[in-house]
Design a protein around this nucleic acid. Structure first.
Lengths: 158, 158
DNA sequence: TTGCATCTAACAACTCAGTTGCATCTAGTG
DNA sequence: CACTAGATGCAACTGAGTTGTTAGATGCAA
C-alpha cells in the first residue's frame, strides 16, 4: 500500500483511458469539435458508475491529461448542453455530473432518481425508480419536473 | 434561476412584525436564549408561506431589525438545530429555510416534498405528498431519507 | 497541404454563498 | 446589581463556480 494514502490514489493505469475511443465516438456524433479535454472528461465520466464533481474529474485526469479547472467546468456544462450528461445538485453545494443512460428518454434528467450514500458520499442514478409514481399535489401546483433524492447506504457500503 | 430572484420591496409595515409574539413564545420553548436576532428571524420565517434564503431574511429585516449577515446564518442554523425550521438545498446553491409544520412528525425534513416555481422562483413545502409513496429501489440500496422536489408553476403564478 | 475563420483552452481575476476567529456585548441567573 | 455562559458583530477567509481576454486548436475550403 502507498504510504500517506489519505484519499485513495488513482491506479497506475486509470480506468478512463480505455474509454477514450468510446468518448471520441460520442463526441463525433455531436455537431461540435473533438478536442482533447472533451475526450478526457467524457471518458472519465464514462468510466464511473457514480456522479463526479468537477474536482473529481480534474483530479482523475491530473496525471495523464492535466486540464485547467475552468475548462473542466465548461466541458461538463457542454456535455449537459448536448445531452450526453446531466447535472445533479448535491447537499454540499457542489454540482456532480453523470453520463446519461442512452436507453433513457430524450430528457433523462427529468423524472429520474438519485441516491447519495451517507458512508462513501457517492451519488448514483436510479433510472428506473420513479417512472411508476404518480403524485397527488395540492391544488394549484402544476409540476413539470420531478427530482427524487434518496440518502442512505449504497450497495458498496452495505 | 437567478439567485435571489426576488419579488417586490417589503411593505411599509412588514408582515413579520405581527409574528413577533408568536416567535418569542416558540423560542422560549427551547432551552436557549431569547435574543432579538432570533426573534426577528423566526418571526420573518413565520410570516412567509414559502422558503427564504439568508439573503431574503436579512433584506426583510434590514429596515426595522438590521442584523449582521453572519448572525442570520447562525440563527437559521440554530433554528434547524432546535427543530423549529428546516433547510432546503436549491438548484442555485443557496440554502432556503422554512418553518416546520408543528403537526408534522418529529423529523419533518425527512419524507416531505418541496415545490419550486419556475416563474416566481419561490419554494414551497408540500407536507402531505410523499407519505403514501413506497419506492422500489435496486437491490443493495438502503434509503434512510427521501427528498422529493418538484419544479413547475405554483398556485400564485398559474 | 496550406490558409483561414471560427471555435476552444488557458490564465487571471472575479463573484457570491457560506464559514471561522476573535473581541465585545447581553440575557438570564443568583 | 454583578457575573458568566453564550450570542452578536466585524473582518478575514474558503471554495465552488463564472467571466473576460488572449493565445492556440480544429475543421473546412481552396
Amino acid at each position: 500500500m502507498t504510504p500517506h494514502a489519505k484519499t485513495k490514489a488513482p491506479p497506475e493505469t486509470p480506468a478512463y483511458l480505455s474509454r477514450i475511443p468510446e468518448a471520441e465516438a460520442a463526441i463525433r456524433r455531436t455537431a461540435d469539435r473533438l478536442t482533447q479535454p472533451r475526450v478526457a472528461v467524457l471518458a472519465c465520466l464514462m468510466s464511473l458508475d457514480h456522479a463526479a464533481s468537477h474536482f473529481d474529474v480534474a483530479q482523475a485526469l491530473a496525471k495523464h491529461h492535466p486540464i485547467d479547472r475552468v475548462t473542466v467546468y465548461r466541458v461538463l456544462e457542454w456535455l449537459v448542453e448536448v445531452g450526453i450528461a446531466h447535472r445533479i445538485a448535491g447537499d454540499d453545494r457542489v454540482w456532480r455530473f453523470m453520463i446519461n443512460d442512452p436507453n433513457a428518454s430524450i430528457v433523462p434528467h427529468h423524472q429520474h432518481a438519485h441516491f447519495t450514500c451517507n458512508t462513501c458520499g457517492q451519488t448514483f442514478c436510479l433510472d428506473d425508480v420513479p417512472n411508476k409514481l404518480n403524485f397527488r399535489l395540492p391544488v394549484g401546483f402544476k409540476p413539470s419536473e420531478v427530482d427524487l433524492k434518496f440518502r442512505g447506504l449504497c450497495l458498496h457500503c452495505t
